[in-house]
């Protein structure tokens, strides 16, 4: 009997792993298809889509699509722009949103609950509805730079960064996390005479690794992957364009699918690398905040 039970357990384990492998393959296939297709000429890429060859690096394999993609568009510039905008926005977002959340959770001031409700309610407003008013607004905003006073923020990095530095979801994430921190720690620090800023810097933020990781990943994905409409309407010069607008360079009348795949592979590298670096913190944050990406 003991042997039979052991066999059953082994079978169950094998079945479980098999199902996990199958599920993971479903998620991996699009990535594998993208990378493999980026190595094939268009005629082969299209011919292979109807068979398993679509996922295999077989046939006429080369890096020609990558060479052509670099000739077609300034990919390095686009990636640099996107990485810069993403890093600055995410950093600023974590600093500002956590400060706002700290204020909502730990400071006593009139109307904070109402204001928090209003901020959270803005989550239901799609960006498309405010895009045009925001465009008109930023096109008239002043800025003092190295060349003195300028009017209008169009064709700059700041117009891609500043409107995105504070958002309701990130504030909400920090609020939820801060509410679960032990109040005794904060009260003890106050009794010892610590300022609110000191408590924020020395106690609250060092304990907030998981939520920082969550906020950073979610915000990064938004800034790197989903920034299309806004830069499309506020950035007209090539020097400031992000990767998603750059994708349009590859959609000519005859679409070069191999180059499209090469471009997508290249611009996916920073996102995948970023996720791999933060994945441990992200997974632990799922357990602690209950938030999934």
């Amino acid at each position: 009997m003991a042997t039979v039970t052991s066999d059953n357990r082994g079978l169950r384990l094998a079945a479980r792993y098999l199902s996990l492998v199958l599920v993971s393959l479903i998620f991996l296939f699009p990535l594998v298809f993208m990378v493999v297709s980026s190595l094939k000429p268009d005629h082969q890429l299209l011919a292979d889509t109807s068979s398993i060859r679509a996922f295999l690096p077989v046939g006429d394999i080369s890096l020609d699509n990558y060479v052509n993609a670099f000739e077609r568009a300034p990919i390095g510039r686009f990636m640099l722009n996107s990485v810069f905008v993403t890093v600055v926005t995410v950093t600023a977002s974590i600093a500002l949103c956590s400060l706002a959340a700290f204020s909502f959770v730990f400071l006593e001031w009139t109307g904070r609950n109402v204001l928090l409700s209003v901020i959270v309610a803005t989550l239901i407003i799609p960006f498309e509805t405010i895009a045009v008013p925001l465009l008109l607004f930023v096109s008239k905003l002043p800025w003092i730079g190295l060349e003195g006073l300028e009017i209008g923020w169009l064709n700059t990095y700041r117009v891609q960064i500043i409107p995105w530095m504070v958002d309701a979801l990130t504030v909400f994430l920090f609020v939820q996390f801060f509410k679960d921190l032990p109040r005794e720690l904060i009260e003890a620090a106050r009794v010892e005479g610590a300022s609110w800023m000191l408590i924020y810097r020395k106690i609250v933020m060092p304990l907030s690794g998981p939520v920082i990781a969550t906020a950073a990943i979610l915000k990064s994905l938004v800034m790197y992957n989903n920034q299309y409409l806004w830069p499309l309407i506020v950035v007209q010069d090539e020097a400031h364009r992000p990767v998603m607008v750059g994708l349009g360079y590859f959609f000519q009348l005859q679409i070069a699918w191999g180059e499209v795949m090469a471009y997508l592979t290249l611009i996916s590298v920073p996102v995948i690398a970023f996720y791999l670096v933060l994945q441990r913190a992200f997974i632990s944050s799922i357990a602690s905040t209950g938030v999934k990406g």
Binding site: L232, I233, L247
Partner: peptide
């Protein structure tokens, strides 16, 4: 890029 050109022009006209 051609696919987004008209949208860019309309946005620029607004601004």
């Amino acid at each position: 890029p051609q696919q987004s050109y008209n949208d860019s022009v309309v946005a620029a006209a607004l601004a």
